[in-house]
Design a protein around this nucleic acid. Sequence first.
RNA 1: GGCGACGUGGCCAAGUGGUUAAGGCGGAGGUCUGCAAAACCUCUAUUCGGCGGUUCGAAUCCGCCCGUCGCCUCCA
Length: 462
Amino acid sequence: MKLYNTLTRKQEILSINNNIINMYICGVTPYASSHIGHAMSSVVFDVLRRYLEFKGFNVNHIQNFTDIDDKMIQVASELGISTVELADNNIKSFLTEMDLLNNLRAKFYPRATEEIDKIIEIISNLISKDLAYHNKDGVYFRVDKVENYGKLSRRTLKDMISGSRVEVDENKENSMDFALWKSKKSGEPFWNSPWGDGRPGWHIECSAMSIKYLGNTIDIHGGGQDLIFPHHENEIVQSEAFTQEIPFSKFWLHNGLLRMGSDKMSKSVGNIVLIKDVLNKFSSNAVRMFILSSHYRSPLDYSEDNIMGKENSIKKLYKVLEHTGGVHSNEINDLLESRKQQFINAMDDDLNTPRAIATIFDLSKDLNQLINKNIDITEGQILLNRLTNVLGIELTNKNKESDKDLYLEPLMSILTDIRFELRNKKEFELADKIRSGLYDLGINLEDNPKGTRWNFIEKGQS
RNA sequence: GGCGACGUGGCCAAGUGGUUAAGGCGGAGGUCUGCAAAACCUCUAUUCGGCGGUUCGAAUCCGCCCGUCGCCUCCA
């Protein structure tokens, strides 16, 4: 499988020697509800993990929570609660939303505030190597002491300093030096350290957690493109300086950002749409299909019309799975093998989900054609399910089955029987009245030669 | 200012040197049906932001121009 590595700006073959993949994905700072930009990132890396597992790898998937930083402190103070409580609340809803999106849970979710020991160990080590210094504001990393600072984001200290947006801080040796530890300010939560009470800076927590849980060199480190600089750049220098092992991560993967009316969706811009609001309007299948229908490194424009369209296209796939019967034919075997291979080829090519999805629709069309030839498509349905599952799209709709409860099922049976008799007697007006009445209640009837099938009209359809 | 990405049909989106430019949504017509619905079939880009160049041949490579966006400050 080839993946685009931000570090080398090239597609590289993912070569794994022991069947285990260590993958660290940058998680959220839980100071507010998550928006669908977070959903995009989480779905992309969930699909990567699912596909690697589909290929037989064992994926150690770790995702962190940065549960202490300026915003955490600020928001907690505004709400009159502790940062711990704020984090707990938002982490809980984040995980619920991940479940609803049908993302597999990471193997472990470490939290910055629970890894202070490891963070202090790393900072002490960096100070001892003269790569960091302590002043009244905290501890800073000396960016001009390492070679290749900027190797991930492809920029140089000179270029960045000449940029207009770097503010000069008198207390720092170099304006690009970044904080490893921030000294306590009054009223802020703090931990003890050799440099006084304070808290970890941004970046160091990810180095600590990645090294502690996955080792000095991991296979894949992922996140949004907005993390390339400074977050991942800084993680690299501090981690490699600490472990003396290069690379910190073999692959750096970054998803394109979700846009809102052609601006990046971001909490600070204020143009956000929350995951929970989207999931109120649309099925998670449609949301995933929307996210995966464009390549993960491209920016994606949020569009409700677009997601609505995905509801319709998914419905087609459902219909294929509902079909039963037909006679056995060997005709199906070659076809399934070639579609499966096309799917694998697409996914192997830097996780080309748009092409993989196209293959799924081709397969669906193939199967419908076989249905019309009265050929048994059971094997094809199994494959269709397997492939959509790699994308985290769940065509066996559990909700639907549970909603068709013991009370409703016999009731519908009576109604469809009555309609059957009415239609036999050519009393179509009355039969149609039942159908349109049920439609208004959210139940759709489909007459076919064998009888009448019914189903709930899904979210996002009218 | 520095670094980077992108511009493909009504919309979304693959394709990065060579037979008819994937797939989805939307739209049109047809088959089936009492009518719907569903499904299937056909049609819906002689053309890939613009202009030049390289080449036997370019959406795909090169140059210039126009436009959009991201990062350089917290961010998935």
